[in-house]
């Protein structure tokens, strides 16, 4: 039986954040694609079955919460786990993320080890490298 790589979509308007997350997750064996805002993420999710979404909150065109709500809506309807990572650590930010449909909310900065560990936990059973 051939296992397919776990597909991750990294969604962040900051190029350096995308590069950082992509670099860490690729080195850990994930197949990573990138989107620069929520709208691009939704478009990508309509054509590719991702196993994990790593989503920022503050983004132009479509923010992270709306992105996750759309990913969970009938329009996309993905059951894949969503990890939201943001600089926002106000009271209620995590609740807002979970209400939108995220599985986990973490505040930046997130260590490399923790990002990979969480990504593996969220995608357990979905193929390499879980």
């Amino acid at each position: 039986m051939t296992e397919t790589p776990v597909k991750v979509l990294v969604v962040d308007d900051a190029a350096t954040v995308r590069l950082y997350h992509t670099s860490l997750l690729s080195e850990a064996g994930f197949a990573v694609e990138e989107a620069a805002n929520g709208l691009e993420a939704v478009e990508a999710a309509l054509t590719t079955a991702f196993d994990l979404f790593v989503v920022d909150v503050n983004m132009p065109k479509m923010n992270g919460y709306t992105c996750v709500e759309t990913l969970r809506s009938e329009t996309v309807g993905t059951p894949a786990p969503v990890l939201m990572i943001s600089t926002e650590d106000r009271p209620g930010d995590a609740e807002r993320a979970y209400a939108a449909g995220a599985n986990l909310y973490m505040v930046k900065p997130v260590s490399a080890e923790r990002l990979v560990r969480v990504a593996r936990m969220l995608t357990a059973g979905r193929g390499i490298p879980a």
């Binding site: 909150v57 503050n58 983004m59 919460y65 709306t66 930010d93 807002r96």
Partner: peptide
């Protein structure tokens, strides 16, 4: 704002 859509739209 606590509203992510509002604060990002305002920043833009």
């Amino acid at each position: 704002s606590d509203d992510a859509g509002l604060r990002t739209a305002v920043a833009e």
